[in-house]
Design a protein around this nucleic acid. Structure first.
Lengths: 340, 340
DNA sequence: CTGTTAGCGCTTTCAC
DNA sequence: GTGAAAGCGCTAACAG
């Protein structure tokens, strides 16, 4: 392997000059620079990033913690993170948590071990130790950004949407269509994001006089199967059927959709159905799914941007930065026909 | 930052002993080991991986090149790669090629730069320079494994399925149902994997006397939209409608499905539809999609296993290792009714 | 089993 | 503008 020494010898300069030429070319006289570049060319020299990173004490690598990489909701976010990272000379170390948040702390160590310069988490767990209720994060924490989820206990730079109001608007829309008996298929109960969405749902319901929603709320884990199962529970319940069902994500809505149709009921004829996220498949359902769009690519971009800000020691507020969501009206929802 | 020296001093031993205790504990006397571990504990020492990697000349990191991370077909493969990697002390550096194979060479350099120990590519492009037609790979290449795709020009360790026979079996199944006018929506024409699949399609058609399939073959790029567009072209064509359509992947089949239903035609009543891959959504279509299952998790596992073999200098044949596929019969295909 | 020693390849003062 | 020299923190001979 040719090293910086070989290049130096070949160009007849010192290793320091080679190093400078490569990292700060403008600090080197043009003739010297040319000599060095030619020697680099000729020897096929490629800098050893390991040595460089070691010396510079940085990796130009950012860890991305993904709760479940097979959940297609995350893929656009990851794509944008990767893209912005790439454009700024950073690489992504991908960690699939496989929905095991207890492994988070293990990955928090990656920065201490110098495997990465910072951590972006798409999940709800903070990969560092902290005392609940603290007003601010430990100043010794490495650059850290949360995406979509957040931990209410401690303020951390977060990029997400306004889940409460997004859910509220979704349910308000169903209400405007005349629905009152609206079931809600929620995600994992311990997820702050889901707490916000259910709060939005409850607010909207309460505004039209439905304050006890207990029998209308079902839980799932964001998977297609969970949607089917929750919908089965709804259809099997002895309570009167809801006229609309709002789901905490599109995958569960698609699972629910299949279940409804399998029972011989129609969407939106018998039941209006609404999802959340606007994943690609939602436009290809039958009927296409009314949903709430999250600007996933934008979320990823902003998240990586904030990470770069932190890495460059620019100020980033320890607060949630909310990006605009959008109601996407398709054909899975319809006005409640009078008398139904 | 506490370094190995601090620990050595605290434990009253040499840095070499600390290093040994941490990497080969069995080579150290128990009493010494205890002293060291206690010092580690007490000082909160975390080894600097950058220094360690630099010294060991390895990163325990493998680059995974993904053509398009938003294509959900890849996510299970990545998940398994990551999982096996993690269990063996490796990390994954994720690169999203965004379908720009020309960037491959840039990433091939990552190993030369010591950013990674090996490369797994899920795409069709080899990220190293090579002369076409060589019998064997350049012995100077770093550990490299291809997944799903392969490059016919040069033999490289590859983990995939038997695309030719899988496609052939799929079409044979449609033929057994009585179909003869079977259209094919292919993926990118320059993909070896697609060349195999179309070969399988043609073989099956030829076996029942259809040797000119030109007007039956359409191209797409594996996306939902491409499926819709290809299907639109089929339906708008002046030729008689096919009674069955085989798609090179499920996403295009789902796109085609929507298009067919939008025209007021029924699947499988008017047109039988068959996909490829068996992604999660396929079971949730209406009707659920008949398809060919690729063992995606297994593919990822085996691929990372082969990478580990290469990294440990075990022999890995420069050949394709084909994993078993499986026909998944659902409701999007039906026997051709006589007289149709 | 343990300590001494010599770097890995690069960057970065600090002189000149 | 350039070179000499001193490490970064760790590991791996080697000797004892």
């Amino acid at each position: 392997m040719t090293s910086i020494k070989d290049v130096a010898r070949l160009a007849g300069v010192s290793t320091a000059t080679v190093s400078r030429t490569l990292s700060k070319p403008d600090k080197v006289a043009e003739t010297t620079r040319n000599k060095v570049m030619q020697a680099v060319e000729q020897s096929g020299y490629v800098a050893n990033t390991l040595a460089r990173n070691f010396r510079r004490r940085r990796t130009n690598t950012v860890v991305v913690l993904v709760p479940d990489i097979t959940n297609s909701f995350f893929s656009n976010i990851i794509q944008s993170i990767e893209s912005v990272a790439h454009d700024n000379g950073y690489r992504i170390l991908l960690v699939d948590m496989q929905n095991k948040p207890e492994r988070a702390l293990e990955y928090g160590e990656l920065v201490a071990q110098r495997q990465a310069d910072g951590i972006i988490s798409l999940g709800k767990t903070i990969p560092f130790k902290y005392r609940a209720g603290r007003k601010s994060i430990d100043p010794k924490w490495p650059p850290f950004v949360m995406v979509c989820e957040y931990d209410g206990m401690i303020p951390v730079p977060t990029v997400c949407i306004d889940n409460l109001n997004a859910a509220r608007e979704a349910v308000d829309y169903l209400i405007a269509l005349g629905h009152r008996r609206i079931a809600y298929i929620n995600g994992p109960e311990n997820s702050p994001l889901c707490l916000d969405r259910i709060k939005g749902y409850r607010q909207a319901m309460k505004a039209v006089g439905v304050s006890n929603t207990r029998s209308l709320v079902f839980n799932g884990d964001f998977s297609l199967d969970a949607g089917r199962e929750a919908m089965t529970a709804i259809l099997n319940s002895e309570d009167p059927l809801p006229t609309a069902v709002f789901c905490a994500n599109d995958a569960m809505a698609i699972g629910a959709l299949q279940c409804i149709k399998a029972r011989g009921l129609s969407v939106p004829g018998d039941i209006s159905l609404m999802g959340f996220d606007d994943i690609k498949f939602s436009a290809y359902c039958d009927p296409p799914l009314t949903t709430v769009r999250q600007p996933r690519n934008r979320i990823g971009e902003v998240a990586m941007q904030r990470m770069l800000d932190l890495l460059h020691e620019r100020h980033v507020p320890n607060a949630r930065e909310m990006l605009p969501h959008e109601l996407v009206l398709r054909q899975s929802t319809a006005a409640l026909v009078a008398g139904e």
